[in-house]
Design a protein around this nucleic acid. Sequence first.
DNA 1: CTTGACTCTATAGTGGCTATAGATATTAAA
DNA 2: TTTAATATCTATAGCCACTATAGAGTCAAG
Lengths: 132, 132
Amino acid sequence: MKIGQVSKKTDLSVQTIRYYETQNLIKSAGRTDGNFRVYDSKVIEQLEFIKHCRHLDLSLSDIKRINELRDNPNAVCEEVNELINDQVKMVKIKMKELRHLKTQLEALTDSCSNNQKVGDCGIIKSLQECDC
Amino acid sequence: MKIGQVSKKTDLSVQTIRYYETQNLIKSAGRTDGNFRVYDSKVIEQLEFIKHCRHLDLSLSDIKRINELRDNPNAVCEEVNELINDQVKMVKIKMKELRHLKTQLEALTDSCSNNQKVGDCGIIKSLQECDC
DNA sequence: CTTGACTCTATAGTGGCTATAGATATTAAA
DNA sequence: TTTAATATCTATAGCCACTATAGAGTCAAG
């Protein structure tokens, strides 16, 4: 299989697949005479795994670490667990920030009745006053 | 006032202040004989405004646009309003994504009882199965 | 006159890609 | 067989909003 086919099967761009290779997340099985990457079907699974993890917003280095642990089945599960828990914590923090953000932004839109002149714009006035 | 003092007053790093200059968000009043930037107090307000907008996660180019509109008080307020509304939309989308993320991550942690071997790790097994 | 704190410019790094240029390889149609 | 279209290769730059560094110059106090 060449990279274009892998790309179609996984719905990842060709560049992304090559990028994952530079980051040592995957390897091609080898090269053709013309220096094209050749893959076996195993890579599809690997890329789906990566996709799934990225979907969970895990960093590529986290994913790399999980892969290392996967390759060593006697390793202790705890590290993976911590990694996921840290991710949950991060997500909670981000959600809190976004809730705050949303409140502030919605307060702003309330202070604007459309088609005023900027000189009278409540939004801009609010932005000038600091409430942090 | 030199840049270090501005930095202290605004709690922005010296590099950030210089960066904002490269992005045409602020200007220094001039330079000393020794080529040090000189600022008047006006810049403090400007930087606080920028800080406030960044706090709302507005992009620097959005902030630049708002500044342009501020300098032209006869402009119509609508554009500022749209800009903020777009920001609210983005925040809502991000929140939705994060909620989804959190659900998935928490489901994962439930599938791990600590200190197992990786070979038996529920998290890793779940990551291998695709539920997208 | 030296020391130390400050400032300057220019450049590289962050993360996770995306996009481009320019060269080579392969495939299909004419 | 030629040619044109498509696929692939490497290397590099760009995105965003900074942060960090190197190496040089400036300035004030002791």
